[in-house]
Each structure stands twice: as structure tokens, then as C-alpha cells.
Simulated assay, not measured.
Amino acid sequence: MTLYGVGLGPGDSDLVTVRGREVLQDADVVYSPGRLSRTVAIEHVPEDRIGDLDFPMTKDPDELRRAWKEAAAEIAPRAREGTAAFVTLGDPNVYSTFGHLRRTLAAFHDDVDLEIVPGVSAVTAFTTALGVEIDAGAGLSLREAANGASPTGPNRMVLFKVTDAPATHEGLVEAGYDVTYGRRLYMEQGETLVTDDPSDIAERDYYTLAYAEKRGLTTDRATDAFLESTERSEGIEHGDPVMGDD
């Protein structure tokens, strides 16, 4: 049968895709790698069909490989006999733990059929939450900014894992960026916060991102002319002087 890697979206159970919800509802077992993904999945799957996996909080590569090998050994038989799903916040192929499982299965259980169900990622969801518009033709770079890192270069960047906002902010401002931060955007767990003040989010939280844009960027949009026309009309209605020929 099949193992589905299902993206749950940014953390709001209402933002799971229709396809993702259908897969979860039909799966014989749904594996969750952590507490937050479990709280989203449980809105769509009975608790008795959710299987938990134990992953140690460590950077030791040997320990991590052992944990993923054990997880693959648990999941593979269920995927061969029926339908299984592995859920992850965001999208399974974007900054996701699912890649480790996919590679481990390929190495030790390559007979398991695999299908990816994409999810709404913070890569795109942040724009609505932060009120940002990325214009057609604009460049946008995805960077990681853990432990106070301040990557620079591109005119527009989305920074993930901003765990030391004050340190990251200092480097970005010095490099000429305006920065807006979002914490736990669209997540039902914890407080959602949008701010341009890094002191508001000085406390470490893995689920913090930032949008950095070089100061002074201008964009020439064809539809800006509509707004300019409206503003001129409103000026005339309010009796503002209009320059014209004598």
C-alpha cells in the first residue's frame, strides 16, 4: 500500500488542505513526530489511530540515525499492509523532518510506496499574516537565522528559526534592512505575535520568522495608476487646488 507524507500547514487545523484531510481520515494509522503536529492531526483523526514516535532532543548524528531507523522499522510494515501517514507542520519538503524518514526508508525499506501531500508553508503564509505583498518579478530569498545569525545580501528575505531576535535585528538593521517579525503565525498553540520590535520577542522560540526588506526599495506597478487617479479625484472633491493650463 502507501505511506503518505502529509503537510499540516502552519499550525491552524483549518488550514490543512482538503487532500490532506482526506488522506488523514482514510489512513489506518497516522504517525506524529511531535506534540504540535499531533494537536493539529487530532482535529481530523480519532486519537486511537494516531501513533507517536520518539525522537531524542539531540544533535548527536548517531542518536538521530538510530531514532530514524527505529521509526522507519515501525512505519514500514504498517505502510505495506495498509495505508499510513506521517504528518509534519508546514510542507513535507520544506524545512521538515520528513526528509529524514524518506531517506531512511529508501535505505532500509525501499519497497514502501511513498506519496507527498503538500501543505501550506510559512514560506507563503507569512505574507498574509505580516501584511506583506511580494510583487511579480521580485526576488525573495529563504534563509535560516538561528542563534542570532543575520544573513544579508538579497533585497528581500524570509528568515526562519529566529531564536535570538535582538542579535539578528542588530545585524540586519546595520546592513540596511527594515524587519518585521512573526511568532507562531496561524498556530493554535501559544501566542501569535507580529512586531517590528525585537525586544517583544526576545525570549527564544523556534517558531519565529522574520521578513527583511532593503530600505528604499521601489516597485513600479501598472495598477498603481488606479490609486493615483483615485487620490487626484478625492483631492478635487475636497477642494484641493489642481494645477492646469492658464
Rank of each mutant, 00 (worst) to 15 (best):
L140F: 13
V158L: 15
L130F: 04
A107E: 15
S141D: 14
V94E: 15
V123N: 13
A149T: 00
A106W: 07
I75R: 02
S150L: 06
R80L: 12
A71G: 09
A76H: 05
N147V: 00
D91M: 13
A136K: 02
G131E: 12
D113R: 07
E133Q: 09
D135Q: 13
G119S: 13
L159Q: 04
T88E: 15
A73W: 11
P118E: 15
L142Y: 13
V94I: 15
L130W: 03
P77V: 05
S121R: 04
G119K: 08
G153Q: 08
V112C: 09
F98M: 14
R65I: 01
D91R: 08
V123I: 11
R143C: 05
D135T: 01
S150Q: 07
R156Q: 14
T128R: 08
D110W: 06
L159M: 08
A145N: 05
A146W: 09
N155C: 02
D110Q: 07
S150K: 02
V162F: 07
S141C: 08
A107Q: 12
F86R: 01
S121N: 09
A67K: 02
V162C: 07
V120L: 15
R65N: 12
M157F: 04
L159V: 01
R102Y: 09
A129K: 02
A122T: 10
H109A: 14
P77F: 08
V112E: 14
A67I: 05
T104W: 06
E144I: 08
L64K: 05
P92Y: 12
D113W: 03
V132I: 14
F108K: 02
V132H: 12
N155R: 01
E81A: 15
G131H: 06
A165C: 10
R156T: 01
L105Y: 05
E70F: 02
E74N: 02
A71P: 01
R143N: 06
G131A: 09
V120M: 14
G82I: 04
R65L: 11
E115P: 00
F126K: 00
A138H: 04
F108P: 00
K161H: 08
T163A: 10
R80T: 03
T163H: 07
A146G: 12
L105S: 04
A85F: 08
R143L: 09
H109E: 15
T163N: 11
D135N: 12
V117A: 13
A149R: 09
P154M: 10
A72V: 07
D111I: 03
I116R: 04
L101M: 06
A84E: 12
E63N: 06
M157Y: 01
R80Q: 11
P92M: 13
M157W: 05
A79E: 10
H109D: 15
G119R: 06
G137S: 07
A71V: 03
P118S: 14
V123P: 02
I134S: 06
V117D: 15
K69G: 09
I116Y: 14
G153Y: 05
V112K: 05
T163K: 04
F86Q: 10
A149N: 07
R103V: 02
E133P: 00
N155V: 00
S150N: 07
G90K: 08
F98Q: 07
L64Y: 01
V162M: 09
D113G: 03
L114F: 11
D91P: 03
G137K: 00
